[in-house]
Design a protein around this nucleic acid. Structure first.
Lengths: 223, 223
DNA sequence: CTATGGATACTTGTATACAAGTATGTTAGC
DNA sequence: GCTAACATACTTGTATACAAGTATCCATAG
C-alpha cells in the first residue's frame, strides 16, 4: 500500500477507516454492492485486512454480508434509526443531569473552546465542519462526567442516523438555534441550574427526530 | 473440525461462541493468556476463523490484543462495569415506562411462561439456569415494546458485569426477592399501574449495583 | 558474578492459495 | 422460440505461507 497521508497502526485500521468514512459520507450508497477483491485491488492491499475491516463494519450493521453471494452497503433501517434516537434521548438526559451537579473543569474549558468554534462557523457553508463540532460538543458533555464508554456506545448506535442526517444536511438545519441551545446548556452547567439545563436538553434532544418519511420520498432506494 | 453437537453456520461463529462462553463462564480467567495457534490446534481448525473470532471478542472488550506480543483475556474493568450499570438503569427504566402503557400480547404470554419457570427453579441450586431465566425476563420486557436493538446493546455492554456476577453467583443472591419483583413488574404491566411498575423497577435496577470491592478482595488478580 | 549481545522461538499482521456455494450465460434438445 | 442442463466466472469461507516485531534464554565479555 502507499500510505501517503495518515499514520495507521495497521493496514486493517486504514482500510476500515476509509470504508467507514466512505459509507458515512454516502460515497458508497445504501444498497450498493461492495466486494472484498475490488476493494483490495483498489487500495493495493491483500484480501485479509479488507476482509477484517468488512467483519467490523458488518458488526456495526453498516454492511450486510451474504456468504458466497456478496456484500452490500446496508439500507437505512428506519426502525433502527428510531431506536438509536430513543437510546440517545434517554441516556443523554441522564448525562446532563449528572453534568448539572458536577462537571470536570478541564472539559468545561474544552466545551467553551468548542462553542467558540461553533459560533465562528455558524454562518459559513461548512456543514460538515459544524456537524463534527456538534458531535464533539456532545462528546465533551459525556467526557465531563466521566462517561466515555456511554458515549462510544451512542456514537456506534447513531451511525445509521448520521447517514440520514448527511442526506438532509443541506436542507434546513437551523444551526443558529442548535448552537444557542448548546450555549444555554453550557451556561446551565456552569451555574448549576438544573431546571433550565434539563428543559433545554429535552428540547434539544427532541430535535433529533427527523422527518424520515420525507427523506425516504427523496431517496426511496436507500431504505 | 468435529462439529459434534450444534449446527453452526460457520467455523468462525462456532469458535466465537465457544470462546465467548468460556470467557463468560470464567473457564478462561481474566488476565489469562490466549493464543490464536493454541486455540486453532485445540479446536482443529485453522488460524483464520480463530483470528476472526478474536477480532470480534476484542471489539467487545473481552480480550486485549497486543500486536506481535500476545493476547490476554481482559481484566475486569471496574469503571466499565459501573458505566454498564448506569446505561442499563437509565434505558431499562425508560423501557418499563413504555411497557406500562402498552405491551405486546404475545410477549406477555412469554413473560408469564418465563415467570413460571423462575418459580420452578427458585429453590433449586441451578444458579446458571436462574441466571439465564433472569436475562430472558428482561429481554422479553424489551421485546414487548419492540426495542430489540436496545436490548442487544445492553446485553453487549453488560458482558463484564456478568463476569462479576458469575464470580459472586454462589454467594448470596436473593433470588426469591428478585423473582417477586419480576412478578410485580409483570402484574403492573398487565394492570397498567405506572406508579407501582416504576417504583418496583427502580428498586430492582438498584440491586444491579454489586459490592465490587468485596469481590475484588477475593479475586485481586482478576481486576 | 553481572551485564550485554545475539540467536532462537513465538506472537500477531498480511498475503496468497484453495474450497464450496451461487449467479449467469450459453448450448443442446425439443 | 423456449426450457433445461451444464460450464464458467465470481463470491465469501477457510487453510496455509510468509513478514516483522517481541520475549526469552544463553553465551560471552568485562
Amino acid at each position: 500500500m502507499e500510505n501517503n497521508s495518515p499514520q495507521h497502526v495497521s493496514v486493517r485500521s486504514y482500510v476500515y477507516d476509509k470504508l467507514k468514512n466512505d459509507i458515512m459520507k454516502l460515497i458508497y450508497k445504501p444498497g450498493q454492492r461492495i466486494t472484498e477483491n475490488v476493494v483490495s485491488d483498489h487500495l493495493n492491499v491483500s484480501r485479509t485486512p479488507v476482509r477484517e475491516a468488512f467483519l467490523k463494519l458488518s458488526e456495526e450493521r453498516l454492511i450486510e454480508v451474504y456468504p458466497q453471494r456478496g456484500t452490500y452497503v446496508s439500507l437505512i433501517n428506519k426502525k433502527l434509526v428510531e431506536e438509536s434516537v430513543f437510546i440517545r434521548e434517554n441516556l443523554e438526559l441522564a448525562i446532563v443531569k449528572l453534568a448539572l451537579r458536577q462537571f470536570d473543569e478541564y472539559y468545561m474549558s474544552m466545551m467553551e473552546k468548542n462553542l467558540a468554534k461553533q459560533k465562528e462557523y455558524v454562518d459559513s457553508p461548512e456543514y460538515v465542519q459544524l456537524f463534527d463540532l456538534d458531535q464533539e460538543f456532545h462528546e465533551i458533555l459525556f467526557a465531563g462526567v466521566d462517561k466515555f464508554y456511554s458515549w462510544s456506545i451512542i456514537e456506534n448506535s447513531m451511525v445509521n442516523y448520521n447517514r440520514i442526517r448527511m442526506l438532509s444536511l443541506i436542507s434546513s438545519v437551523n444551526w443558529q438555534l442548535l448552537i444557542n441551545q448548546h450555549e444555554e446548556i453550557c451556561n446551565a452547567i456552569k451555574e448549576n441550574d438544573e431546571e433550565k439545563g434539563i428543559a433545554v436538553m429535552k428540547d434539544h434532544l427532541s430535535r433529533l427526530t427527523i422527518d424520515i418519511e420525507k427523506i425516504e420520498e427523496k431517496f426511496p432506494d436507500y431504505f
